[in-house]
């Protein structure tokens, strides 16, 4: 019973993450929703699967959770820094950016610099 609640909570968190991926306005905010809320949702679902007892192997599930939680911040930090340096769009960067001058930042996102087209409409 508790396992099933965990499964439902995890799936709900994944759905929220997907909605956030669609609704938020720049890559950094989307990363908060997708990478983190999404991974935590998967971790919840794994806990649920472990608690439902006809799924036998507990060690694989625990190991997967451990691996996800260990690698998630590393990936998020690398991806965030790379996105910042490559000039991905960032809301409210004009008013206050303590990173300016610390890290090199390109003026336009990579995709626009590669093909030289007009910036696409931000959704």
């Amino acid at each position: 019973m508790i396992g099933q609640l965990f499964l439902i909570a995890g799936a709900a968190l994944l759905l929220v993450a997907a909605v956030g991926l669609l609704r938020l306005t720049d890559p950094f905010q989307r990363m908060h929703a997708a990478t983190k809320a999404g991974t935590l949702g998967v971790a919840l679902m794994l806990i649920g699967a472990i608690l439902i007892d006809d799924v036998a192997r507990t060690s694989t599930g625990l190991f997967t959770i451990l691996f996800l939680l260990l690698t998630l911040p590393v990936g998020a930090q690398l991806l965030g820094r790379a996105a910042y340096m490559s000039g991905a769009t960032l809301d409210q960067i004009e008013c206050d950016d303590p990173l300016a001058g610390v890290l090199d930042r390109q003026q336009a996102p990579l995709s626009e610099r590669l093909d030289g087209t007009e910036p696409e409409e931000q959704r």
Partner: peptide
Amino acid sequence: VGPTFADRFVALDMLTALAVAFGVL
């Protein structure tokens, strides 16, 4: 839709999370 590469990759991250979730199901 994407507009930037960073967006697309965040989406790919999410896709793999969903793949693991389907595996759990």
